[in-house]
Write a protein that binds this DNA or RNA. Structure first.
Lengths: 229, 229
DNA sequence: GGTTCTTAGTGTAGATTAGACACTAAGTAA
DNA sequence: TTACTTAGTGTCTAATCTACACTAAGAACC
């Protein structure tokens, strides 16, 4: 069923950089391309926009189809439109980034296991299209964002020790942070709620667990702050 | 000459929020729509993307065609894709914002004078499509940006007194700033170069003129800082 | 020529925040 | 019981932020 227009239209797609934090590292989710161009190369999950669907919906739909991920935190990153970014035709892509916490959002088993995989940020293979550029911008955005907005709610499990939040910050910023100063700052910010529980199953003194106070977190997100640590 | 595709494609356009600072106010540039939909209503300059053209090029081309503005500072804002943002069909628009200094970029006279006009931010009329939403996001972005990047180079004449820069900051932030603290902070930042000249044609003590040091300015832009004033 | 008016240009003190830094406490494992 | 690992805590110094008011310079007016 062909569609005809008076003027030529570039194709429009979405691509998504999915960040997830696991026990080792901050990782991103890639899929192995089954089709040309760049067949067999790893790339960002994504696909063509449909008429009547917002780009965010496109991104969510493709993410669900290709990786099984649903109801993740999703934010628009940038729209890449260079005419030669796709060798076949002019495809403009709205890039999104997603933050997921791996413990609560397992990548679906039904997907061919060889087709979807997490990669540490330092071990990303050569990517299809301009996806390396998109990934780089996403990392930059994340680093920039962390400086004036709280991050973590979307990447950490519901209950976590302060240590884990610090580890996340260190992974994103790429440098070590002082434990005392970090605790001081993050606890004074008031976005964390102390729980009565402590960790279990650790081979050392168990740390107190916290959770994000959603209201404070969202308020901080709106108004912004300055977090240098 | 019709174009046919296997799948339906949403139309793709750009829209541009053009900010300019004049003697009174921070203003934005609007055009009066000559065609349906929203014929006669004011809206943002913009138009349809062409195959083989990046969206930034589209935005620049449309801006030149509709307002005569060329070689302005242009940055991508956000891509709006709600299916109902255009009543006729699904048109996705990549919004950009531009910063221009009115003294060096006059809006072209050749344009029908009634068709293009500057509006103060408080006197913007009802806009076509979702352009009010786009404008609001652009203002927010500008306010956000000013807090961690230098702004002014693009909006002020080459040589200007500190007062003018402060006025710009006050217009963007929407509140008064302390003169001494502002001078201290902005001068210590090192992005301003003191000139030997002073203002002329003012009915009071003439202020020293400054210009931006391009290198420092760009460096600051990259690394970011924190400007609370 | 003096008076008035307007904006330029300057400094400080107190409060707050950032940054560097090291030890004891608690729990597990052997 | 000892060794090991991580939790959890406070202080001092330097830097930065904030609030705040007067004199200097030049133009306009009389």
């Amino acid at each position: 069923m062909p569609f005809t227009y008076a003027h030529a239209r570039p194709a429009l797609s979405t691509d998504c950089v999915v960040f997830g934090l696991d026990a080792e590292d901050l990782k991103i989710l890639l899929i192995k391309r089954a089709l040309e161009p760049f067949k067999g190369r790893w790339g960002l999950p994504g696909g063509l926009a449909r008429v009547g669907e917002s780009l965010e919906d496109t991104a969510r739909r493709e993410l669900a189809e290709e990786t099984g991920l649903r109801q993740v935190f999703l934010e628009q990153l940038y729209t890449f439109s260079s005419p030669d970014r796709n060798p076949q035709e002019h495809v403009i892509t709205a890039a999104y980034y997603a933050l997921v916490n791996l413990s609560e959002h397992p990548v679906r088993a039904s997907t061919d296991a060889r087709g979807v995989a997490w990669f540490g940020l330092t071990e990303v293979p050569r990517l299809a299209f301009d996806h390396a550029k998109i990934l780089e911008l996403a990392c930059e955005r994340l680093r920039g964002k962390i400086r004036y907005q709280p991050i973590g709610f979307e990447l950490l499990p519901r209950k976590f020790p302060v240590r884990e939040l610090q580890r996340l910050y260190e992974k994103i910023l790429g440098r070590a942070l002082d434990k005392r100063n970090f605790r001081k700052k993050i606890l004074n910010m008031g976005i964390l709620q102390e729980l009565a529980q402590t960790e279990t199953d650790v081979a050392h003194r168990a740390a107190r667990l916290y959770r994000f106070s959603k209201e404070k977190y969202d308020r901080m997100k709106k108004q912004g702050f300055n977090f240098e640590v």
